[in-house]
Nucleic acid binder design. Structure first.
Lengths: 251, 251
DNA sequence: CGAGACGTTGAACCTATTCAACACTGGTGG
DNA sequence: CCACCAGTGTTGAATAGGTTCAACGTCTCG
């Protein structure tokens, strides 16, 4: 009955070349961060000196939950999974980070160990700075500490929203909401749909929505049949954003 | 079969008298906050001038989700529920705050509206300060902003842990963990058990663990039969902390 | 004492999981 | 270049954990 279309993945899975994290990119990333907006060129340059770069391939572990929280990272290129290991078996995917987002010891400035694990989801690179050096920079520039507080505060609100969703909404609603958020963050317009431009398996979606890959598959099949989305191996595209928002309950 | 014991509630439900939030208490609270430790008397006094007090009775709404985030609060006496309204029906209890804990616009310094609702859980009082005034204090004292960052970072870790639990642990484990946390925070030694010293209904526990009051009741009955806890109307006492920790999976 | 909130327990039901079989995709090596 | 195979995705059927609905018991306060 269903017609097979789009056999080739529209997501670019080609390995990013090492020179992607060039000096130019580094400065562009730092300057573009809302975090550092308002700083002059000289300040950015001096900040830049504190950062070192790190290239990664899909599946690489950047750090493990429980490791000493020695560094703070900013995604420059590609995407990074932030996950929490469940005592028994299945992992939980807390967040999928893209260019410009912080991870590592920002949320853990007072803590000595990372509370979660960071793993590369695609090829790419990140900039990183020692926790102590970042802390010193925050100490010197009170404005930056307030910005950091806002960033972490927003993450906290998101986490609380997610607790609410897990407590009271069904899988379809949670999957729809997750797709909506991802589309907003990683959406790339294609001919006739909005592609979520990162490798994304059913298992990834399951770990983000507290479901099983099988249930996610069923939900996506349903959405595809209704014309809300289109999907394939490791990718999802949105055909009808309004309908998706409706399924997500508009929160 | 089961013998009825302890018919009278061991939790003190008597209304706190208004004079509880006296000047002396206010200064004691502010000085005791890890947040302000290291500040001298004069600094505390000047801080004190910015705070106003607010007495509340059980069930009072302190602010509603969606209200303009104009103030930041510190619990002085009693306990405060932080909750999130689910679109359909049932609320989610995000946190139960006690003396010394912040709520209000700390997590929302960059946001103009409260993301959650605060409601008094017992009689008591809180100190509050205007968001703008607090922001200015943080601007003047970089050290305080870092402390605030640590506080919010810890809340974020807790929220992420909760997401993990909701994703992969059963109700009994979540209830056990919640009781353990509450016992740690509000535990008051009685003759032969550790009382969680705040009014706590089955519905409260249900809203904290993403379950129904009926299921919580069944779980507690089970724990009581095993001798792990003892409980009554609006209260729970821990008889065997080690066993409870085992049920909670030790996280 | 009576009313209403809180708590308990049972039984039917339902959503999502689990287990299982099978299909498709894309990369690897013979 | 093609065959193979591991990873990924789909679908069905049985199962289980928790919810829902309902009835009843119990405590507290006015």
């Amino acid at each position: 009955m269903s017609i097979r279309i789009r056999r080739r993945s529209p997501v670019n899975l080609v390995t990013t070349e090492p020179e992607h994290c060039s000096i130019e990119l580094r400065q562009k990333i730092l300057r573009r961060l809302p975090f550092f907006s308002g700083l002059d060129e000289a300040a950015i340059d001096s900040l830049n000196d504190h950062f070192v770069e790190l290239s990664f391939q899909p599946g690489d572990t950047i750090y493990l939950a429980g490791d000493p929280a020695e560094r703070l990272f900013v995604v420059a290129e590609g995407s990074v999974k932030l996950l929490q290991h469940a005592p028994e078996g299945r992992d939980v995917l807390l967040d999928l980070l893209t260019s410009g987002e912080f991870f590592g010891s920002l949320t853990a400035l007072g803590v000595e160990r990372y509370p979660d694990t960071a793993e590369a989801n695609s090829a790419g690179c990140a900039l990183s700075i020692r926790s102590a050096a970042f802390r010193q920079i925050l100490d010197e520039r009170p404005g930056l500490a307030l910005r950091a507080l806002e960033v972490v505060g927003r993450k906290l609100s998101e986490a609380n929203l997610r607790v609410m969703q897990l407590s009271s909404q069904d899988v379809e609603t949670r999957v729809a909401y997750t797709l909506l958020k991802l589309a907003h963050k990683l959406g790339k317009p294609k001919e006739d749909f909005l592609l979520i431009d990162t490798p994304l398996t059913r298992t990834d979606l399951a770990e983000m929505t507290a479901a099983t890959p099988e249930t996610v598959s069923r939900v996506l099949s349903q959405m595809q049949a209704e014309g809300t989305i289109t999907s394939g191996r490791q990718w999802v595209g949105i055909r009808n954003l309004d309908q998706l928002a409706r399924l997500a309950g508009d929160n």
